[in-house]
């Protein structure tokens, strides 16, 4: 008896591709969760060490809230423009997607520049990570966030080129969605850093 051959249509294949893409998105959410745990561990370290200044300066002496507020505004605005890019993505408007992501990129770059400038300042006045347990945990927590931002920026650059060349196909849309999730996630982490490290640190006398 001859087996019947079900004709496989293009539609079926497209459905499979879409399922695959949604699976990747799902996996990406789990990755974000693991990154949350990673930051949670760093926050815990900071919480344990934040008073161990070992004769060095405390957060209240080092942090300038207006400066950090500027950083925060840059990052929040970048998150907003990233949101606008997502809306443009839904409307399949390639030019807008690239435009808003470019804006996001610039704002993120600005944030990173400010952060590095602050780090440089601390190192120059000899309050680097080697000074005390407090500063070790401060640099590591904030620096890890900065490292994530850097990775996000590289990713964004690659994606802009890719959209320019390849347009908004299924694959690129999924990748942009992942990038947007990543970027918002970093924003949320920064809110915690702003509150726990800078606000509480600067308010403590």
């Amino acid at each position: 008896m001859e087996p019947t051959l079900a004709v496989s249509s293009k539609a079926l294949r497209r459905q499979e591709v879409e399922e695959g893409q949604s699976k990747i998105l799902f996996g990406f959410w789990i990755y974000i969760m693991t990154d949350c745990v990673l930051f949670a561990s760093l926050f815990a370290t900071y919480a344990v060490l934040h008073n161990n200044t070992f004769g060095g300066p405390s957060g209240a002496q080092l942090f300038s809230l207006p400066y950090v507020l500027a950083e925060t505004m840059l990052l929040l605005t970048s998150s907003f423009s990233c949101g606008l890019a997502t809306i443009a993505l839904q409307n399949k408007s390639k030019a807008k997607v690239i435009g808003y992501f470019f804006l996001t990129f610039l704002l993120g770059l600005g944030f990173l520049a400010l952060e590095l400038r602050e780090f440089r300042h601390l190192v120059l006045i000899h309050d680097s990570w080697t000074r005390s347990g407090f500063l070790s945990s401060y640099f590591t927590l904030v620096g890890t966030h900065g490292l994530h931002i850097t990775i996000g920026l590289i990713w964004m650059a690659v994606m802009m080129i890719r959209v320019l060349k390849g347009g908004l196909g299924t694959y690129n849309v999924r990748r942009l969605k992942m990038l947007a999730i990543f970027w918002h996630f970093l924003d949320v982490i920064w809110i915690f850093i702003f509150t726990i490290v800078y606000l509480l640190g600067a308010l403590r006398v």
Partner: peptide, 8 residues
């Protein structure tokens, strides 16, 4: 100085 004996 995360886990060192000195340095906080």
């Amino acid at each position: 100085h995360f886990f060192t004996a000195g340095g906080g």
